[in-house]
Design a protein around this nucleic acid. Sequence first.
DNA 1: GCTCTGTATTGACGTTCATCGATATTCCGA
DNA 2: TCGGAATATCGATGAACGTCAATACAGAGC
Lengths: 124, 124
Amino acid sequence: MTDLTLVPRDEAIDTAAAAPAACCGPLTRETISADDAEVFARRLKALADPARLRLVSIVAASDGQEACVCDLIEPVGLSQPTVSHHLKILMDAGFLTRSKRGTWAYYKLVPGSLDAAAAPLVTV
Amino acid sequence: MTDLTLVPRDEAIDTAAAAPAACCGPLTRETISADDAEVFARRLKALADPARLRLVSIVAASDGQEACVCDLIEPVGLSQPTVSHHLKILMDAGFLTRSKRGTWAYYKLVPGSLDAAAAPLVTV
DNA sequence: GCTCTGTATTGACGTTCATCGATATTCCGA
DNA sequence: TCGGAATATCGATGAACGTCAATACAGAGC
């Protein structure tokens, strides 16, 4: 389903999870299906944690909407493995992408992913 | 704490949790505070469940954005106590209000509560 | 090669959560 | 007043989650 074969590697990484397709229409318009509810719930669950919200926010508010792990640990006040764990969850949910430069890992906000996640809730 | 004494019963119930103030600005503008992250996460957690999303959706898509519990149990396919449990969580989070008519309980969507919950995620 | 540094993974522990059956509560009708 | 129907609460159980210490992995520099 995902077609990455013809794309240069760096771009591939950046856009790999960059298709945050809306799972469903507005909740207020029409009853959501069981499958769509599952997808949407999984997405919301990835955000529904104080530490992860702060991580997303720090990344999103950084230059180029990108931040190094080394700059994320101290602000959230959690251990390095825990931060790494949360970042993985956010990546799996399609909100962040990872790019390594040397020993450092940079996490970047997937453009539009937050809006896509919020879309089914918005009525206007 | 809840002051219902001077207000007609139905209005009191309808407007009790009807103040879904935005917990914070857009996540992308500025780093969210620890306290705001806690508040926002609690709100998202209430929605981040397939059963609760379906309940909210059914209620929101009903006439007058209101539905009887008896009409909610069968669509979600869960036991009555479980549905009641989820409805309470949605009520505590400020998304639904309850009004009893006879033996029936009607749950109504708090106007604007979904938009308020989504607001910090939206960039545009 | 070796060491150091930054990050990811593993394993374990305590907490929270979703779910149900059983029971309590509330209200209507006979 | 009693019985029945609709809903809420209680108690228990198994699964998922957040956290950390210990460890593994990868890249840079010597």
